[in-house]
Design a protein around this nucleic acid. Structure first.
Lengths: 347, 347
DNA sequence: GGCGTGTGTGAGAGCGCTCTCTTATTTCAC
DNA sequence: GTGAAATAAGAGAGCGCTCTCACACACGCC
């Protein structure tokens, strides 16, 4: 199958065929200046005839650039796959990366046992940079990347302060807190007064920030109106059940994700509660395949997930650029994207 | 960020520190025989002290092995991400690959324009093998891999015959046809007599095989009872709508995927039809996050998707092994895994 | 026509590793 | 104790590429 005698042409052979030196072929292949047109043409012809493709390993060995970026997902269990959120983000990353001729190396970890493997991989110089989704308040993965001298951008605001990890930890996140405020204000505007919150796991900054936004608008909310979920439909359902037990007359729910909102919706319907008449429901994320397809469709806080993935990739690529060009100093700073309310039928 | 002065130790430096030659260090690092214990110990100590990690590019340059496998997903649009099916499969692949110290390079294509890029990448010798999900009846991607001399395993039975692509096209698929037969027989056993089928897109072999299984049990079925979906909830809903228009008194539906079944379920409920009392519904795949969470939970045909991913990786890795060892000839053949009926509440 | 100046091309080192081949050392039979 | 066989360690070439530097050759100036 993988034919060991499968000989790819080398630079040397192309050079011989075109009657020039290796250096000249290299120049043409890499598009650098200073090769006279007719010569360049002859080289290109030789490249085509031989079907020459540069050997990346050899190139990497000397340039110390891989043209590859690792996407590290630290998710002990199924969440990476269950949640369309990651999927969309990876898609954005993939698009941006391939647009700049970079490859995406996917590193999934199952529990902290895999961290060492990831660390070794990053240190091995396989990739130029890393995009890390380090959920749960744990900075060991970014720390490894730092030690390995690999540029890093984190998905989501990290839960640790900068002083721990050096000057600037780059990350891309949406305005979770502001979005949550908008959600709650919308419910308030609808005349709802007993508003509950289904939070995400509170070891993640996204969950914390959304809860903080909720509290910004409704300070001093009865703790009975807040239940913690886990960003799964099941978790949303469980949290909804708990909330209804504690506060049977609640008239609105702000769920910290669409996926949890969909779980909550099932419970509400099973209890015979009408949405939005009896209970208004707002989600978060605007994951179309979820929010538009619940019954009724979800009012939610939209964040452009795919674009955030793109931004992560772009930020990393910029961090990777050689320092030069002082006339256009590269600004490297975390990015926080705006959110906005999308009103559908559920609230 | 990515510190250019970040100097990783080389073999040479480790050798100097341990007071041995480069070759000896290499032997120790690669675990080959013939280094006396005390020396090996000294080398290991030097490796640890210096934090030496082999440079993969240099290694690849001489061994012609990358320790990386490409996962190519040819899906013009959102399906890769919308459908948990791929996600689970990738997870299985990832597990198996990392267990054998191989990396997963994810290559997503958006339309055929990207094919060329993928072809170039495969030809560039970046990866040892490729796992291709080439949906739609199109063999240009596997063909590219073959031309590039890259070992390949396809996800799902390819739609072309072997004569087109040489001796053996390796693939892993489940017994779609047999599973479909089981589904329909189950409905028949429940006393249903007007059984409809929501098929997947019929340019994919999985859809065709499932339809064939349906027809095996119910030959000569009225074409009005068969509608084509697209493996999305929306498509399932549309197909269900069409079927109800054409055959208002149907009493059972076999959907070619759980995701489509969930769309169909919504339509049924909206029409006031009870499941399973009025219409029995069977899905396919047993995607837990879908099948267990519909209302009622779906009866479906289970295939072990993650395990299939593992098998793909394992098969590829075996194909990659050096030819040697005639005493244990490596058998390389497509794999078809069994399916089985999982009875829940919907039928 | 000699000399700088600039531009285009070639020669060659070297990236970090593996692996073959050679040399040094040990082991054991006689 | 000697020599052959077995084993351990080292020397060095070379994987395919980039990139610096030296060189060749054109041009315009005095």
């Amino acid at each position: 199958m993988s034919d060991p005698t499968f000989a790819r042409p080398t630079l040397e052979e192309v050079a011989a065929r075109a009657g020039v030196s290796r250096a000249t072929v290299s120049r043409v292949v890499n598009g650098s200046e200073g090769v006279r047109a007719p010569l360049a043409e002859r080289v290109r012809a030789a490249v085509d005839e031989l079907g020459y493709v540069p050997n990346q390993a050899a190139r990497t060995l000397v340039t110390r650039r891989n043209g590859a970026v690792a996407v590290v997902v630290a998710e002990p269990e199924t969440r990476f796959f269950a949640d369309p959120f990651f999927a969309q983000q990876v898609r954005g990353i993939s698009k941006e990366l391939t647009a700049h001729d970079n490859q995406l190396v996917l590193l999934l970890t199952e529990g902290t046992a895999d961290y060492e493997r990831v660390g070794r991989y990053l240190a091995g110089g396989h990739v130029d940079g890393a995009l890390i989704f380090s959920l749960h308040d744990d900075n060991s993965l970014p720390e490894m990347a730092r030690k390995a001298g690999v540029a890093t951008v984190i998905g989501g605001r990290p839960g640790w302060s900068d002083s721990e990890t050096g000057p600037t930890t780059l990350y891309v996140d949406c305005d979770n807190r502001g979005g949550a405020r908008d959600a709650v204000r919308h419910l308030l505007g609808l005349g709802r007064r007993r508003i509950a919150h289904i939070a995400g796991p509170l070891d993640q900054t996204a969950s914390i920030d959304r809860l903080d936004g909720f509290r910004d608008v409704l300070p001093g909310t009865d703790p009975a109106l807040i239940a913690e979920g886990d960003f799964t439909p099941e978790g949303g359902a469980r949290a909804m059940t708990v909330l209804l037990e504690r506060v049977p007359d609640l008239d609105a729910v702000f769920a910290a994700s669409d996926v949890m909102a969909s779980g909550a919706l099932r419970v509400l319907r099973r209890r015979g509660l009408r949405v939005p008449e009896d209970v208004a429901l707002v989600g978060f994320d605007d994951i179309v395949s979820v929010a538009e397809w619940t019954d009724p469709p979800l009012t939610t806080i939209r964040q452009d997930i795919e674009e955030m993935g793109r931004m992560m990739a772009r930020l990393l690529l910029r961090a990777l650029e050689p320092a030069g060009r002082p006339e256009a100093p590269v600004v490297l700073a975390p990015i926080v994207t705006p959110t906005h309310l999308v009103v559908r039928a559920s609230a």
